[in-house]
Design a binder for these strands. Structure first.
Lengths: 229, 229
DNA sequence: TTGCAATTCAAACAGTTGTATGAAACTATC
DNA sequence: GATAGTTTCATACAACTGTTTGAATTGCAA
């Protein structure tokens, strides 16, 4: 047993390769090659490839949420238990955006891995991911504290949209950069974060269709009546 | 040559299976089984699996964008060449959300396939997808017509965020449903569309961090200074 | 040192994948 | 109806995957 050196080397190598190349492009032989261990070590220490991925995901998601929740707690403590909604959103999306859009360092591998996990959704991860959402509940509660008058359903949609914008920005940054011909500066990480935070805060405070006075709607191309008319 | 019956059967079967199960879970043997043709027919008619996927994606993305652009044109014609920003966003995200969240019919397969293509990003598709963005330019121009005073960069971000919210809603609907304990009704497709449209319109009209007066920001957990301070 | 369990290793295994082959069946033209 | 070109078919192939095996090596306690 000793120090589980081999186990840790496998986990770290897998995290690095999955973060860089995604799950579908990385084989066990790639991982053990990167880790400098024997192929059979994976099944010896983890039982199977899926169990390796599951353990990797669990440990990394715990670490990620610890950072997010620490940032949330700091923001709430600074505000006497109630943080501005922007600060809550920032704690939710900031660490991931910084880790994925900022310069690649040792500390950013985990953010890039988690994004891969949320994008590719390989079976052993999907199960855990759809079951374990306690950190989202924590953030939803914090948002309710920030916006005590908001309806619950609006909170959930706002939280969902905040994650959506952050993830898609990471995922499709190349296309956004090409479309805008460089006008959308993804290198300005903190600027990107404020964009996402601002848009999410707007959706949370004024984004309910019922509370938002939309201009008269034009007919759709297919003339379909909409449910809210 | 005759009627290319086999070719079409392969394309349709591939579209259906990829839409339902994703790219990584569907093999050529699954496709030819569903199509009722011989395995070798794929390489005979398309050259390789990747070329089949590429052709499938090209034809389907053209069809999808034809629908979106027709809806956009109808909205602009109804407004004398300038549609409300909500209508532009609705034309962009409505067809996809209806196709993916609404009841599964023959006509919705294409929307579900396109979402898979945008989610899984398999190599032959990624190349095309990152190069061919003319439909996004069309929508960006329409948005500029709707909001002549908006800065270009805000338009691009708003367009990007609109797609982000729509895609993530399709992709992560299960988790949103669980988090909200059913409060976010994803069966009310038109209601979901209005949520996305409203949030995107808000981001487009008031979402620039410089134009949005955010409350004072709380310190982050790690005390990192932000670039915009 | 001796003995025993834990760990590592090279090699093989079984299954699946996309692709290639060559014969058979079909189609249309003369 | 014979023939040439196209399309279909069963089958084989080569490469790659995760997993298993059994022998070698290591580490540690007696």
């Amino acid at each position: 047993m000793a120090t589980d050196r081999t186990r840790t080397a496998i986990l770290n190598a897998a995290e690095r390769l999955y973060a860089e190349r995604g799950f579908s492009d990385v084989t066990l032989r790639d991982i053990v090659g990167e880790a400098g261990v024997n192929l059979a070590a994976v099944n010896y220490h983890f039982g199977s490839k899926d169990e390796l991925i599951a353990e990797l995901y669990v440990t990394r998601s715990i670490a990620t949420n610890r950072i997010r929740l620490a940032e949330l707690k700091a923001a709430e403590d600074a505000g006497g238990g109630r943080a501005p909604i922007e600060a809550v959103v920032r704690a939710l999306v900031g660490p991931t955006l910084r880790g994925c859009l900022g310069p690649a360092t040792e500390n950013t591998t985990i953010a890039r891995f988690m994004i891969r996990a949320s994008i590719e959704s390989v079976p052993p991860i999907r199960k855990i991911r759809n079951r374990e959402i306690s950190h989202l509940r924590r953030f939803a509660q914090a948002m309710k504290r920030s916006l005590p008058d908001a309806a619950d359903v609006d909170i959930y949609w706002g939280l969902h949209f905040a994650l959506a914008m952050a993830h898609q920005t990471i995922r499709d940054s190349e296309r956004l950069n090409k479309l805008s011909e460089g006008a959308c500066d993804l290198g300005d990480v903190e600027g990107v974060i404020e964009r996402v935070v601002t848009a999410a805060a707007l959706a949370l405070t004024a984004g309910s269709p019922s509370s938002y006075k939309a201009p008269a709607r034009a007919a759709t191309a297919r003339g379909r009546p909409t449910a809210r008319d």
